[in-house]
Amino acid sequence: MLYSYTMSSFLCFISFLLIISCYAGILPTGTQNDHKARVLDLPLSQQEHFTDLNNDKKVEHNTEYDHEAFLGTEEAKNFDKLPVEESKKRLGALFDRIDKDHNGTITKQELKDWIKSVQTRYISDDVQKQWIQMNNDSNNEISWNEYDKTTYYALYDDVPEPKTVTDQYLRLQKKDRRRFTKADEDGNGNLNKREFADFIHPEQSSRMKDLVITETIEDIDRNGDGMISLEEFISDIWDSKQANDTTEPDWVKIERENFRKYRDLDHDGKMNRKEVELWLMPTDYDNIQAETEHLFHEADADQDDQLSKEEILEKHDVFVGSQATDWGAELRIHNDL
């Protein structure tokens, strides 16, 4: 998110756990991403929209974010591998799909609807993938035993693990058990597919809202006072030891200021539960609308609040990229557009 809900305090163990969790590519729900996924909204991209692209501590616009928001993560990778002309050809075909009324232009609402459908598909695909991995008996429900034995198999096999890893697994197992119980809406001890979606993507479910807030506070709150201090907040998003540099980048300084101005609303130096809720679930921000406005700003040359095919193709690098943005990854190319 993205965005699978995450636990940044577990990041230092990920490299090792990736090795011991290679079975079916499964990790506990708390290890699927990093702090970037904390604000709960549809994951427009796995990238940061503005980030330090050149490791020079200067925040810049990242076009990869726009590509993934417009295409979806996997299709963005495919487009990145294409030659420019083929990329434009496929973008033209996409234009015709987005232009629902077939009048030759795309409105802001049509673009917004498209981006929303792309990101909703991401959630559905992820649920389906994990459902297949977890549903060992191929019925219409997943039991806790199925999920537990598949995800935390290292706790049950005969291979000894370091105590630190075992302790982390036990903590995550306990956390997942609580979330599983909350997601089990009918209380029958199993999860149907809708309940399973709420379990692995609680940030997308209104009935899981309170638990998401609780989990977030537990993840970041180091001193156990039930609140998130400024330093706890900063340590969650930036590790000076891992960065091997005690000089804070500009973006961290900006986050410090944002915490004081916009997150700690009562200015007591900490975020209480209500302030955490407003941070995770902002009521005054629509990320899909923001991305739509951004793409229009980049491409609407005549500023008529509509995008013609010519305008989009002229700015194809903003929407889909090309070989010019390929970082050398070996990517599969689909021809399904």
Rank of each mutant, 00 (worst) to 15 (best):
S8W: 09
C12P: 09
C12F: 12
F13Y: 10
F16C: 04
I20H: 05
S21D: 13
A24L: 05
A24K: 15
N33I: 07
R38P: 02
Q46E: 11
N54T: 02
N55W: 01
D56W: 00
K57G: 14
K58F: 11
K58L: 12
E60N: 07
E60V: 13
N62I: 04
Y65F: 12
H67W: 06
L71C: 12
G72P: 04
A76F: 09
K77W: 14
D80H: 13
K81F: 14
K88M: 12
D96T: 15
D99K: 03
K100M: 11
T107I: 06
K108A: 03
K112G: 07
I115N: 01
Q130S: 13
W131C: 00
W131K: 00
N135C: 04
N135I: 03
N140G: 09
I142W: 15
D148P: 11
K149D: 03
T150K: 04
Y152F: 07
V159R: 08
K163Y: 08
T166I: 13
Q168N: 07
L170H: 13
R171C: 13
L172C: 11
Q173K: 04
K175N: 03
R177K: 15
G187W: 14
G189F: 10
K193Q: 04
K193P: 03
P202V: 03
P202G: 13
S205C: 15
S206H: 06
K209F: 14
T216D: 04
I217W: 01
I217K: 00
D219G: 02
I220G: 06
D221K: 01
S229A: 04
L230H: 08
E231T: 11
E232M: 04
I234A: 07
S235I: 10
D239G: 01
S240K: 14
A243Q: 01
D245Q: 08
W251V: 08
K253N: 13
R260F: 06
D266K: 14
D268W: 02
E277W: 02
L278A: 09
W279S: 04
M281I: 11
D284N: 15
D286Y: 09
I288G: 00
Q289M: 07
A290S: 09
E291K: 09
E293Y: 05
A299C: 06
A301N: 01
Q303S: 05
D304K: 14
V318R: 07
G321F: 00
E330Q: 09
R332G: 06
